[in-house]
Design a protein around this nucleic acid. Sequence first.
DNA 1: CAATAATGTAAGATAATCTAACATAACTTA
DNA 2: TAAGTTATGTTAGATTATCTTACATTATTG
Lengths: 114, 114
Amino acid sequence: MSTISYKDKKVISIGVVSELTGLSERQIRYYEERQLIHPDRTKGRTRMYSFSDVELLVEIANKIEDGLQTYEIRKINESQKEQKTISKEKLREEIRGQLNVRFGLMNRNESKFK
Amino acid sequence: MSTISYKDKKVISIGVVSELTGLSERQIRYYEERQLIHPDRTKGRTRMYSFSDVELLVEIANKIEDGLQTYEIRKINESQKEQKTISKEKLREEIRGQLNVRFGLMNRNESKFK
DNA sequence: CAATAATGTAAGATAATCTAACATAACTTA
DNA sequence: TAAGTTATGTTAGATTATCTTACATTATTG
């Protein structure tokens, strides 16, 4: 659990993100202002993005092209995040169920939510 | 074939690489000078590295710690690269063999080496 | 029409990187 | 042992990249 892959490591600065996405730096910073994206910062305050962020930005760009407004996109993204959490929890339950069937286990060490 | 994953995309600048590897920028540039590593460059001549490069640098650092010299490490890396090419070719042959067994095919379109 | 949204652009400041050079300690080698 | 080589540090000056803030503009929306 919680193994952080390369995809989620925030190691890319804004110039490269701009090239990868085709968005201007102005746009990328603006989407942050509208809370669609959340880069890390270095000590020097340089924004750092992950490949996941790049993917997200491309999705954002598509939605903008479709005429959506930033606050709508934020809502969508937030509800998707919820969705993901839920389905992860469901997956966990499923797995737990299967383990119980196979080994007849009760939940031991780990508390139900973590 | 030749799908380039995030791992091989050269999007990381030297400061971050330094943090990820624990090596000084001086060391990283020196290993380039000794041809152990081959970053891309932006138009502005900023060096750009991939996660694979980061992994390679960690291996290099370990070998240096073991007392190897850069030219020895380069030889090792080069022969490993050869090795990889060979084993990939072997894998290809194996697969080809299996396909032939299953479907009775001869090599059609693709020339033997590419 | 007045406000908001999305984006461009410019200016000045700061951070990050580059190259080149000099220094040095630890090895090698002739 | 003297002279070169290796690996690394450090410094300096130049250049590139990024940051923030502000002002401008066009389109959209209430």
